[in-house]
């Protein structure tokens, strides 16, 4: 007995679950190779990579937020509404505080303030959703369907549905800065977010709480995890990330509008599932999510290079990929179950 115990391995280093990552890497490689072969002169160019780096951060950051909520066994369908509402508030503040053609040194503090307001709005939106889910026990799907309507509705209400354009030049100038002439600011923000959240999930107390709460919320209650506070903090984090995405969208489009990025909601769920987040909660990693974001971006940029393919095929492909991934994962897990059954009951 003593001898056996001594062989116990160092815990907390997970093994065996990473087949999903390997699969994603293969998929990424296949998609890349396919596009590179079919459209070599367009796909494998610095210009294409530059434009891809400007496109995915906005929905990628939201997808990371959605993934966090899915790990807790919930879902956040209100990310796009939060992003737009935050951006619109920031835009309103800029219009009010910065006169047209104001010099940069006069505009800068107000721009910073506007960014802070947007971030605060994201936090508040998330806190409200978290409160509905944890305190009022509304199922996350319904609560966030509701908040999505509410936030988008408020955004329409305060703008009468009109785009908010004519932002101070400085904002889009900062927002579209390229570092080393290659990496847009939004890409760097995405990297920081992805690495930060990945580290949070793998190495912090909060991260482990998320996984455990997502596995069994009742057991989490009895283990003293503080379910309400964890859920509220998770949705706040998702809201914060959404507002960051909103600010990026605003910089790229040089305007804010209540109904920007409508397809992103589905895309975020798709990315999370594709990236290996278990829709019933408790499992999944940000590395997988990041790979899923790249796969989707390669696919969608590649498809844009075929003139005869309508933009709407993206919906078909995303829907199709989502279902194929689900089917594939199911078949694999069925095989694993059968193998386990053969080994013993």
């Amino acid at each position: 007995m003593k001898n056996e115990q001594a062989e116990v391995a160092l815990p907390l280093i997970r093994r065996g679950r990473d087949q999903n990552l390997a699969r994603l890497l293969v998929m990424l490689g296949v998609v890349f190779a396919l596009m590179a072969v079919l459209r070599p002169e367009q796909f494998v160019t610095p210009a294409n990579f530059g434009s891809m780096m400007r496109q995915f951060p906005e929905y990628g950051i939201m997808a990371i937020g959605v993934s966090l909520t899915m790990i807790t066994g919930g879902i956040d369908l209100g990310v796009v509404g939060t992003a737009n509402l935050s951006a619109i508030l920031a835009a309103k503040l800029m219009f009010a505080a910065v006169p047209r053609g104001a010099p940069p040194e006069q505009a800068l503090p107000y721009l910073a303030l506007a960014v802070l307001v947007a971030l605060a709005c994201g936090l508040a939106c998330g806190a409200f959703a978290g409160l509905l889910i944890s305190r009022f026990e509304i199922p996350a799907i319904l609560a966030t369907l509701g908040t999505q309507q509410l936030y988008t509705g408020i955004a329409i209400g305060i703008t009468n549905g009109r785009p908010q354009s004519g932002l101070p030049l400085l904002y889009s100038k900062i927002g579209n800065t390229e570092f080393f002439g290659l990496f847009p600011l939004s890409f760097l923000v995405f990297l920081v977010v992805a690495v930060g959240i990945a580290f949070l999930l793998s190495s912090s107390r909060f991260g482990m709480y998320l996984y455990m709460l997502g596995t069994n919320s009742k057991a989490a209650l009895y283990a003293g995890l503080g379910n309400t506070s964890i859920l509220i903090r998770t949705y706040m984090l998702s809201g914060l990330l959404s507002s960051v995405a909103g600010l990026i969208m605003m910089a790229r489009a040089n305007s804010a509008k209540a109904e920007y990025g409508a397809p992103y909601t589905l895309q975020c769920v798709l990315i999370a599932v594709l990236g290996g987040i278990d829709p019933s909660g408790g499992f999944g990693k940000i590395v997988g999510v990041t790979l899923a974001i790249f796969i989707l971006q390669f696919l969608s940029s590649g498809l844009n290079m075929f003139n005869n393919i309508s933009n709407f095929y993206r919906d078909v492909i995303w829907g199709g990929v989502l279902i194929l991934v689900l089917v594939f994962n199911r078949l694999l897990s069925q095989r694993a179950e059968r193998r386990a059954a053969r080994r013993g009951e």
Binding site: Y211, M212, T215, N216, K218, A219, G282, F283
Partner: peptide
């Protein structure tokens, strides 16, 4: 249901 996180 109350004590353990079974799949973890």
């Amino acid at each position: 249901t109350e004590g353990l996180f079974l799949p973890q």
